[in-house]
Amino acid sequence: MKQRLILSALTVACAGLVACSSTPSKPEPTALSTFKAEFAIAPSWSLSLGEIAGPLAASVHSNRVALTSSAGRVVLLDGDKGQVLWQVQLDAPVQAGLGGDGQRFAAVNVRNEVLALEAGKVLWKHALPASTLTAPLVAGGRVFVMTSDRAVTALDGASGRELWRYEHRGSDALVLRQAGLLMAVGNTLIAGLGGRMVAIDPDQGRVQWEVAVGSMRGTNEVERLVDLVNPPARDGQTVCVRAFQSAVACVDTATARPLWSKPMQGHQGLGMDDTQVFAVEGDDKVQALARADGQPTWTHEGLRFRGLTAPLVLGRSVVVGDAQGYVHFLSRKDGHVLQRLSTDGSAIAMAPVVVGQTLVVVTRQGQVRAFNAQ
């Protein structure tokens, strides 16, 4: 089996520089500007979960959200009140998760084992041949896992028995140390394998179609890394994705037809509403693109170098967290600041999510904070 080297976003960024030390200097974060709050937002509840050290994700289903700490504490919470519905402490740290369908959830630990969870208990474990940083996808009574060797494995949700395994024959030897694209659209499994969006039959593991999203650039393998990153933005059959430091593109998954592609550097996933796609660029400019053709509609430069998360569309806002623990609400119409809130001062660990009517953010220190917008 061909071995692949997993690289962080910082390593890839350094590859483009003439000289890059082990501790490269970063530009100073842009100072926050004053603004006039255009709506009220109030704390709802909070929970101390435990440190979030890697690219973990929330699993949201109606008014419930499942979360895991890096140390392996998994909780299912009621989004309205923050009540713990069940919890379990795993016997090894978690490196990828959490995925779920509302009843059954899955994570991958540092031993490269998939663990299926239900009602606060571990149902089964399945050993993987390679590591992964992408949360498992739980859908249709199965658990799907995409590993760093660019293979996708389907497991039976009740027993963990392997149903099939698809191995991508890409020639690229490097993999980004970041969660990749793995999602369901109808009865099709969509995976980001290299710079390609690949549709797989979830029953048989056969490829149905492929669409190139990222275009390789540069002369070495680090510069040519174009993995598709999580989270994608989806509305019906339209899925928009980012190819790492390469492009933002939208694809009609019903016809396997690329709708448009725009060169853009950046490493975070996307948000989308009915008319625009929202993206964070590599220097943390927030940009809105017309959903029809990818043309820029507005750019907000007031949060540059603040270490932003992927954007969330919420009401009339585009919501992003930053590395100083702030959560920013920008106008979907023109990008001006509508509201801002602070948490515990540590970085927002993942893209904010909406659980029922509640906004939930998670910090690197493991504080889960919920807010109600008025």
Rank of each mutant, 00 (worst) to 15 (best):
T11D: 14
A15S: 13
V18W: 11
S21P: 10
S22V: 11
T23E: 09
T23F: 14
T30S: 08
S33W: 03
T34N: 06
E38F: 07
S44Q: 15
G54K: 08
P55D: 15
V60T: 02
T68F: 01
T68I: 00
S69L: 02
S70Q: 03
S70K: 07
A71R: 09
D80I: 14
V88G: 04
V88M: 05
Q89K: 12
L90V: 06
P93F: 01
G102W: 06
Q103D: 13
R104S: 12
V110C: 08
N112F: 01
E113S: 07
L117T: 08
E118R: 10
G120K: 03
V122L: 04
L123Q: 15
L123V: 11
K125G: 13
H126C: 10
P129K: 06
T134D: 00
V143G: 04
V143S: 00
S159Q: 08
G160R: 06
G160T: 11
E162M: 09
L163S: 14
W164P: 15
H168E: 03
R169D: 13
G170H: 11
A173M: 09
V175W: 05
Q178E: 11
A179Y: 00
L182F: 04
L189S: 05
G194H: 00
A199M: 12
A199L: 11
D203G: 08
E210R: 15
E210G: 04
A212R: 14
N220E: 09
V222Y: 11
E223W: 01
E223F: 06
V226F: 03
V226R: 13
L228K: 02
L228M: 05
V229A: 03
N230C: 10
R234T: 13
D235F: 06
G236T: 03
A243E: 00
A249Y: 05
P258H: 11
P258W: 04
G269M: 04
L270R: 09
L270F: 09
D273K: 11
T275S: 15
E281N: 08
K285P: 00
K285Y: 08
G294S: 14
P296Q: 06
F305I: 03
L308D: 06
A310S: 15
P311V: 03
L312P: 12
L314P: 04
V319P: 01
A323R: 02
A323D: 14
Q324I: 01
G325S: 12
F329G: 05
R332D: 09
L341R: 05
A347N: 11
A347L: 04
A351E: 15
P352A: 04
R364T: 11
F371S: 04
Q374L: 10
Q374V: 09
